[in-house]
Structure formats: structure tokens, C-alpha cells
Design a protein around this nucleic acid. Structure first.
Lengths: 140, 140
DNA sequence: TCAATTTTTATAATAATTATAAATATATAA
DNA sequence: TTATATATTTATAATTATTATAAAAATTGA
């Protein structure tokens, strides 16, 4: 998915979402930054560029994008909801020290358990927690 | 882990947690019911037996048990926090229609991505969503 | 341009969780 | 046993995240 304004408009129109300025800004942010942000982070960054922005708009937009499967929720921690551009076959690792969330490739189809053969699986999420390499180094 | 009152006391003492009546009740509930309950469910069920029970106690107790690694948080949905007795190598499947959460066996070590070789992994969670067999049947 | 519709904004309402302090229960030592 | 100290529970208040509502602004189509 390209990050140019026009291309994002097209992506939204494909999903029958009107490409308003605010919606494109949110989508653009998620694609460009790739930092699995919280609503607060998105709001605080974007309000610099769009001073009239309201937090309700962020919530509305994210919920729209989630319904359209362009964005997914990262519920790696129960006390903070984060958001991520939808990409297949990647898991999330959160460092317990610095809080950074890393993407990692994982072939999720491979570990589909036999027990679920009669289940219709629509969404697969893999969340790991631990300590990232740079924090491990720093600790020593 | 046995569910008898005395055994649960021992489990708690091993973790240096005083085995108060309320704490044992919560732990016992989680082990016996295995329903991945929310705080509200735990509270509403236990208050029948322990009428003086307070919701703050449920929160305090769960946080203690989580710190002691006896219980883990199931963050399969961003708008509801659920709790589960800690067991290795099982994932959670949530049915999008009936809301039931199913456990399934999954060999999590198998799909450890190469990319994470320099990461220290402390916790692994696998969350699937979709439609369970009985809801699939019912739909037809 | 004008009316109709959609989106955004500002604010209020709701719900989940944590913090606080008083009351209760438990443990320890004289 | 009794007094004292400590830990736990309870009730309540405070905080925070999210949703709901209605007015204002922007967009669309005639």
C-alpha cells in the first residue's frame, strides 16, 4: 500500500469510505510511522498538523478502518489499546522494559492446531512479551 | 493443580501470598470454572457465596495472582479483560457469534521465528477469532 | 446557489480500573 | 490470653478510556 495522499484516497474508496482529510491523515500516520500507536499518540502527533482535530474523530476513524479491515487492534496489553495497519502473517513482540512493539514474521498457518479443524478462523494474533536485544545489552 | 482448599493454600504460600478466604475463592473459581471470566463474572458469581465481597478485592487478588504467574490475562478483545489459570502451550479461540472462548493446544515453541533469536521471550499468547462449530451448524 | 447528507467537533455520559482511607481480620510477642 | 502491629478487605472517590449526542462545518448533487 502506497502512502501518497491520492493512493490512500483510492484505498478508502475501495472500501466505500469517504476519503476525508482527517481519515487520510490517520491512515497515512499508521502506514508511515508503523509504531503501533495508542489513540493518544495518534491524536497528540496529528493535532500539531490539524489543530481543530478532535479525539472523537480518531476513535470514529479507527473504528471505521477496523470494520473495513484496513486496520487491526493490537491488544497485547490489557491497559492500552494500540492500532496497526493490517498485514498478514506477522506477530507482535512487546519489550517489557522499553515498551517498544516489534513486528516479526510468523507463519501462522503452520501451527494451526488440529483441534480447530471444525472452527472457521477469521483472525489470528500472536503476541509475545519479553526483553528486546538493546534492553538486554543495556542490562549487563 | 488440585482444587481443594488446602492445596490452593499451599500453592499460594509457595508464592508468598497469604491464603486469605477471598483469595482462595477467586483462585478456586478460576480453576474450577475454566471459563475465562471477566471481573464482573467472577464478582457476580462469588458474591452469592461471600456477600460482603468487594469488587476491589477481585482486582487486588487478580493482580497479585498475575504477578505470581498463577493467572494470566486474556486480552483477546480490546473492550473486555478476561482471566485464565496459567497453562503452557495453549491458545485461545473466541467465537464472534456466541462469545465463547475455547482453549486449544498449540506448540508455541515450534513457530518461534528466527528473527527473535536475540530476544528474551517471557510470554507467548495466541489468539484466534472466528466461528465455533455449533454456531456454524446453527447458521445453516 | 441551495437543500440534503455526511463528517467533525465539543461536550456529556458511561464503564473499567485504580487509589485512598477506614474497618476488619490475622499474626506476633509479651 | 491480651495487646499491638501488620495485612487484608471493604466502601468510596478519583481517574481514565471510550462511546453517545447534538450542534457546527464541510461536502455532495440538483
Amino acid at each position: 500500500m502506497k502512502t501518497s495522499f491520492e493512493n490512500l484516497s483510492v484505498e478508502l474508496l475501495k472500501k466505500e469510505i469517504r476519503p476525508s482529510y482527517q481519515r487520510i491523515k490517520v491512515l497515512e500516520y499508521l502506514i508511515a510511522k508503523r509504531c503501533h500507536p495508542t489513540v493518544d499518540q495518534i491524536f497528540n502527533d496529528l493535532v500539531k498538523e490539524v489543530p481543530t482535530l478532535s479525539k472523537a474523530t480518531i476513535y470514529n476513524t479507527l473504528n471505521l478502518l477496523i470494520k473495513a479491515k484496513l486496520v487491526r487492534v493490537v491488544t497485547i496489553e490489557d491497559n492500552e489499546t494500540r492500532y496497526d495497519i493490517t498485514m498478514s502473517n506477522h506477530g507482535h513482540f512487546k519489550c517489557e522494559l522499553c515498551g517498544t512493539i516489534f513486528d516479526f514474521k510468523v507463519n501462522i498457518d503452520n501451527f494451526m492446531a488440529d483441534k480447530l479443524s471444525e472452527f472457521k478462523i477469521n483472525e489470528r494474533d500472536v503476541y509475545f512479551k519479553g526483553i528486546c536485544p538493546s534492553c538486554l545489552k543495556y542490562k549487563k
